[in-house]
Amino acid sequence: MQYEGVLTKMQTEPGNPIQYYMVFENSFLNVNQLLGEDFEINFMGFSCLNCTKKKKIYRMGFCYDCFYSIPSAGDWIMRPELSTAHLDVADRDLEFEKKVQLQPHVVYLASASGMKVGVTRKTQVPTRWIDQGASFATPLVEVPNRYLAGITEVALKSHFSDKINWKKMLLNDITLIDLIARRNEVQELLPDEVRDYFATTPEKLYELQYPVLEYPKKISSLNIATTPVFSGKLMGIKGQYLIFEDGTVFNVRAYEGFVVQINV
Rank of each mutant, 00 (worst) to 15 (best):
L190S: 09
N30P: 11
R253S: 05
G257F: 01
R121W: 07
S231Y: 10
K56F: 10
A155H: 08
I237W: 08
E4R: 05
V259K: 13
D196V: 12
N251H: 08
M115Y: 03
N263I: 09
L34S: 04
H159A: 12
E256S: 15
G118L: 04
L189I: 14
Q2K: 14
I243E: 02
V125E: 05
L102P: 03
V119K: 11
V249E: 00
D131W: 00
V107R: 06
T12I: 10
I70D: 09
H86N: 03
P211N: 11
K54H: 09
K53E: 11
S221I: 13
P211I: 09
F67Q: 04
E193W: 10
Q11T: 12
L148N: 06
S135W: 12
D196M: 15
P80Y: 11
V229Y: 08
C48M: 14
K54D: 09
L234H: 01
V125K: 01
V119R: 11
K54M: 09
G247R: 01
N42W: 06
K56Q: 15
D246N: 14
G150I: 15
I224H: 08
Y197I: 09
Q101K: 07
E203W: 01
N263M: 06
V249H: 01
E214H: 10
V154M: 15
Y215H: 07
V186F: 10
T226P: 00
F244C: 01
T52G: 05
G114H: 09
E214P: 03
N251P: 00
S72H: 12
R59H: 09
T248I: 06
M44C: 09
A137F: 02
E203K: 08
E207I: 07
I57S: 01
V117H: 03
R146K: 05
D173E: 12
Y147A: 02
S220F: 10
F136H: 15
Y3S: 05
V100K: 12
V249F: 04
F96I: 12
K122C: 02
D178H: 06
V117S: 02
K167V: 15
L171A: 03
H105I: 04
C51T: 11
D88A: 08
Q11L: 13
I164V: 13
Q103T: 11
L87F: 02
N30E: 15
I224W: 04
V107W: 01
P71A: 12
D192V: 15
Y147R: 15
L234F: 05
R121M: 11
K233H: 11
D88Y: 05
K116F: 03
Y206H: 08
V186D: 04
R253W: 02
P139W: 13
A90D: 11
R182Q: 11
L179Y: 06
Y20P: 00
F230V: 12
L94A: 07
F250T: 00
Y3R: 06
V264A: 10
E81C: 09
V252H: 07
I237T: 04
S27V: 02
L205S: 09
I262T: 03
F62C: 13
V117C: 08
R195Q: 14
L49K: 14
D178M: 08
P211C: 08
N263F: 04
E256N: 13
Y197D: 07
V141C: 01
E193D: 14
V23S: 00
D131V: 00
E142K: 06
L49P: 04
R253K: 10
A149S: 05
V259E: 08
E153S: 03
N42R: 15
P80T: 11
S220M: 11
Y255S: 07
L242R: 05
Y20M: 02
E95H: 14
F258T: 00
T227S: 10
